[in-house]
Design a protein around this nucleic acid. Sequence first.
DNA 1: TTTAGGG
DNA 2: CCCTAAA
Length: 619
Amino acid sequence: MEVDDSHNALDNKCEENGFEKKGSSDPVVYQLVRVEGDGTLVPATEDEVLQFEHFLHDEKVDLPSIEDVRHGDELFSNDCMLLKKSDSEDDSSKLETADVGTEKLCASLEENRLQSLDDSSPLKCTVVHDQQPDKLHPEQGDNNIAHRPNASTETAKSAVLNDSFIAEKDNGDACSRPVDDSCTRENDSPVTSSVPDFSILRGEVCLDDLTIRELQEAFRATFGRQTTVKDKIWLKRRITMGLANSCDVPSSGCVVKDYRVFGKDGKQLDVPQAISLVKDQVINPVNERSSPSSSYYHSEEQQGSSKRLKRVPVTNDEPQRNLLDEQCTIKRVRKPTKRFIEELSDNEARDSPEKLSSPAKRLAHDEVMLKPPVTPFHEVDSLRTSYPTRKDTLGGLSVHVPYVSRMRRGRPRKRFIWFVGNKPLVQFKEAQTTVGAMLENDIEEGNHVMKAFKDPPMVNVVKGGHIEAVDNKGVHKLQGNAYNAAAKPKTNRAFTRKHHRAWTLCEVMKLVDGVALYGAGKWSEIRKLAFSSYSYRTSVDLKDKWRNLIRASKTQLPALEDGDCPRKSNPAIVPIPPSILLRVKELNELQSQGGGFTAPVKFSGPNSKVVQGEGSGFC
DNA sequence: TTTAGGG
DNA sequence: CCCTAAA
């Protein structure tokens, strides 16, 4: 109980043949039960159901194909760790090899499939299965015996595993499987009651004397589930194994006395071999850590089954891993939930701002290529961060959020035009017509495109481009990411920041002329008339530059007067000629004093002529 | 949209 | 250059 309180149980309400090989369409209903320390099964509480819900989900979703016999076998054994109800045990179709996780599989595998399956397929249990040949299934018995001459490392098949695993739940209690008397006994209805009737095992009962019906009841009392198997030997073995906590039991001659099983010789059977297996796992946390899904096999390998070495456990074998996690050790770190992973990625993204900034820098300086190298697809969860990835498909449109940043901000290349004309652009236009218009208008100077992309409709664009490139599952998440990234201005800013364009002297002079003509503040007019060919200069830019010029005129001119050459102070920056600065100063003083005159002003100052001359000569 | 101003 | 408020 302290070790493994929780356990999954499968409740198969499906028809015995209802399982498809792929397990895709099988409507299995799972029932979660808790295995008490004494081995009794108690319906799981709601909390427990929630806790293990994802296991069941994974179970259903990830039901792998068993085309590969080994694989199926693994799966089978794995799923057999889950308790499961089934009334199809008696019908063990040999063709049915993919009955994942069903009791029936357990039974059928033991009975019939052994021969059809790869005989060398690794068996899950290290306990000898057949000390006695199964009379009803000589071929099986032969197989078993042939492969496990001695009761040592060879193994039991799935059904045994199933039981042994149940036994493992008992972990500490090597004392067979005593059934708690306190368990309700009033439930005699074998069909509807989920509580087994343990009275059948009370007192001294020779299993050989029981009828099939009684055996079934005993089975139910032992395993907490009903069975319709009518194979007496099978039932006896199963019951015996269950009570003995061991796979190493004879097929007949067992006597159940007070919930303990005794062999023919009166020796109590509870050989906790299976428990040693569990202990191995606990001792080897490394296995659990590095490959939790294979820990079970590891322990087997340690016990010398060389065949098992070949087996590569399925990595996505969620139920197995999780069950092991739950059953084998408390210490085992719980598998991170999806939510945990998401949060973790978010934290990681936040903790490493470079991740956010570096792409922006790269893009800002690289003038984004149309076909940047496709980087590995990020984990979807990590995409949830505001840092978009760079998956590039569909002519560059399937990219994620940073698609924007790919837009060439500088002079576009020819392919950009093609790109603009590509289908994705149509989507752009549909989403926001202005975008397309801007693309076309500013195709020479792409700076404005970025602005347009900052608008929410861009999200749709990204999504639209994305849908065609990724699978459905990815699409949703990536869409969400795209939306998140777009919704976060802070992040977006990094990708939408205008490419820095240093103001040329020509531009400065045009600006000054424009201010002289139209007055400071008429930035839109100045832009229209003087900067029509510089579409990347917005009115705000002009305003900002003018402000900077004023500042410069106030700071640099006095310095010049002092004889200090600005060039020396900062050689990297092309200095604004003092004449221009002087003119700026004059204009500024004039306009600030004059109080908003807008009429064009002719400057008659000594510098104006020079400036004009320079300006005209430049542009 | 444009302008002004803070950052 | 960005961002935002205000007009």
